[in-house]
Design a protein around this nucleic acid. Structure first.
Length: 593
RNA sequence: GGUCGCAUAGCUCAGCUGGAUAGAGCACCUGCCUUCUAAGCAGGCGGUCCCAGGUUCGAAUCCUGGUGCGAUCACCA
């Protein structure tokens, strides 16, 4: 039984015996640092049922607990707060019952499956910092859900069709001179992205000419020859024109190679990719169904709508009057297809920016109205935009922080710091490069994941990402320190005897075990809230406490052998939990740094 | 204009279902490497929790109304 439940029962009994009333709930909280104690019972909240002076009630309950519950060794009452000091034995018992800290906090996978979509790139440009946030968030949430006991499928939807890719294709055709990734040595996604920018530049030139020639600006925007040509290309693509389709395949192929390299670099993967070119027509089949069910209605011009005014939303179009699909139609179809592909899926999470909050609200409502059982378990993991000091990132204008460049920069910073410190001079070049990347990525991922997803991030490339304080590298460093201790302990076999006997716990040891105890609940809470930030904050608390322990409590120079063994075991446990927690954030931990 | 989200130290952020004197990091200032990795530890400085009401024994947290910032409200995706 959990300690709080145990205490709760006894407190209820104590109240019953002393005041002859039955208490519904007992409220606990962690004892504040400035007071002595481990758990605090809030007496204030009992006053509704138990009449009397809160201090006296606290004293009475405290007295009862000390005499009846082994785990409670002391107590004190401050105002309406009953602070309980737990016995060392309670902490030791907990610590010793955990057989293997490497799986501590995680739950074996159950049958209940979720699908997490966490990327939806367009194929006309390379991935940038905005995509990085998206991918890191989704990947981490997928890992957290897995650790909390869910089966998880990871997926991405690739936006591979439409006017945007036609723009790149057209510009390449006109100005590319047959350039390929092989011929230029450029990464495929970068190459295609360059032509997207090129298109925009040429288009703007045309605009200026038209406007100079007297065409009104608005009219020029829609009548520029280059744009008309791109639209013509899109029509040809939809008609299956051989030449256009083969160019499309070729250029998208380059982009996928580039994306794959970036994803691998970041360290994320997917079970299955969905392509819009395959799915954009899927939803149309369900329009008829929806009409029959009365979920949708047809206007005289043939367009089909879903009336959501009862839910406080608008009327939403799901099929154009010419019978073609819109974005919403496609998303309806894709969702249904996913459940067909993975029949055990009973819910989906969409990791998409908050600019699409409204879209997903509508999508989920429609799917519910269509009567799919899994529609009850849809969640839009909405995150804030990543902005630069100069404002929004815009691919067309080249004001983006490129994902690959960013990762390289982070590794370069890690390299600089490592070389200054000179602790790994004996590493091989390959080992060094791996470590720099691990640290650089750790810094970046932690920096992004530790903040609440809803908040927008202002990223200043000039100031870069910290490597000290509440950062990924600080936590990785602590892990490396622990490994160093474990290596030393392994050399000295005398220290490996198991911790036995009654130890008097150091205050720092007690604090550490207390934090370790919270890990399983933290994983569940993070899963319920889809929040990697909770894992990040937890890990930081644990690590901060560990470093304090490390610097204030001798390990190998402890007085008794049993103490040495226990402290080594404690270090090992903390190390394992750091490793697990960081794996949930998609961050690796080094053995040395 | 309607709807949604955000607002906490100079900066970046925590603050769980309401609880004690609102916490970290960065920056700034003091100490600590002959001893388990100083990417660290110990401490100092720093607050009108956007504003005004309300609920409550108790509000950064909940409710109402403002202000500011962002997003969204297309037969675009």
């Amino acid at each position: 039984m959990k300690l709080q439940e145990l205490l709760s029962q006894h407190i209820k009994t104590a109240v019953q015996e002393n005041y002859n009333v039955s208490l519904e709930e007992v409220e606990f909280q962690a004892t504040r640092k400035d007071f002595e104690g481990d758990v605090t019972v809030v007496v204030f909240s009992m006053l509704r049922t138990v009449k009397g002076n809160p201090v006296q009630i606290g004293e009475t309950i405290g007295q009862y607990l000390v005499t009846h519950v082994d785990e409670v060794s002391k107590f004190n009452v401050v105002k309406g707060f009953l602070n309980l000091v737990l016995s060392d034995q309670h902490y030791l018992d907990f610590f010793n019952t955990i057989e293997n800290f490497s799986t501590f906090g995680t739950v074996p996978t159950a049958a209940d499956a979720m699908m997490v979509e966490y990327a939806s790139p367009n194929t006309n440009k390379p991935l940038h910092l905005g995509h990085v946030r998206n991918v890191l968030l989704g990947y981490s949430v997928a890992e957290i859900l897995k650790a909390s006991g869910k089966k998880v499928y990871k997926t991405q939807i690739i936006n591979d069709r439409g006017i945007h890719i036609c723009k790149s294709m057209l510009a390449w055709q006109r100005y590319g001179n047959g350039e390929t990734p092989q011929s230029s040595g450029l990464k495929g996604d970068k190459l295609v992205g360059n032509y997207y920018v090129k298109f925009d530049q040429e288009y703007k030139k045309e605009l200026e000419q038209l406007v100079a020639g007297g065409t009104p600006t608005e009219e020029a925007k829609t009548s520029a020859p280059l744009l008309l040509e791109a639209q013509e290309m899109l029509r040809k693509w939809e008609a299956g024109d051989d030449e256009v389709v083969s160019l499309w395949k070729k250029m998208n192929g380059w982009v996928y190679e580039g994306f794959d390299a970036t994803y691998e670099n970041i360290g994320v993967d997917f079970h299955k990719n969905y392509y819009e070119s395959d799915t954009y027509l899927l939803g149309k089949d369900f329009i008829e169904q929806g009409l029959q069910k009365g979920v949708f209605e047809k206007d005289p011009d043939g367009s089909v709508w879903c009336d959501l005014t009862d839910e406080g939303l608008d009327r939403k179009i799901v099929l154009r009057s010419d019978g073609t699909a819109v974005y919403m139609t496609q998303d309806i179809g894709t969702a249904i297809q996913r459940v067909k592909d993975f029949p055990d899926v009973n819910g989906m999470i969409y990791t998409v920016g908050n600019e699409q909050d409204y879209h997903f609200k509508v999508l989920f409502l429609i799917l519910k109205k269509l009567g799919f059982s899994w529609a009850e378990n849809l969640y839009h993991l909405s995150y804030g935009m990543v902005d630069l000091p100069s404002g929004k990132m815009k691919s067309r204008e080249g004001t983006v922080v490129d994902a690959d460049d960013l990762i390289d920069d982070m590794a370069a910073t890690a390299k600089k710091i490592s070389e200054e410190l000179g602790k790994i001079d004996d590493f091989s070049e390959e080992e060094k490069e791996n470590l720099y990347k691990t640290i650089g990525l750790g810094a970046l991922k932690y920096y992004i994941l530790k903040v609440d997803p809803r908040k927008r991030i202002l990223f200043n490339p000039e100031e870069s990402v910290d490597f000290q304080g509440n950062t990924g590298p600080f936590i990785q460093y602590t892990y490396a320190r622990i490994q160093s201790i474990l290596r030393k302990a392994a050399e000295d076999k005398n220290n490996t005897s198991t911790a036995e006997g009654s130890l008097a716990l150091h205050e720092k040891e007690k604090e550490l075990i207390k934090i370790l105890q919270q890990f399983p609940d933290t994983v569940q809470l993070a899963a319920q809230n889809y929040s990697p930030a909770l894992i990040a904050n937890y890990t930081y608390d644990l690590v901060k406490e560990f470093n304090s322990f490390y610097q204030n409590v001798p390990i190998f120079n402890a007085e008794h052998k049993a103490e040495v063994a226990f402290r080594v075991a404690l270090c090992s446990a903390v190390g394992e939990v750091i490793k697990t927690a960081f794996s949930l954030l998609g961050i690796e931990v080094p053995n040395r740094m």
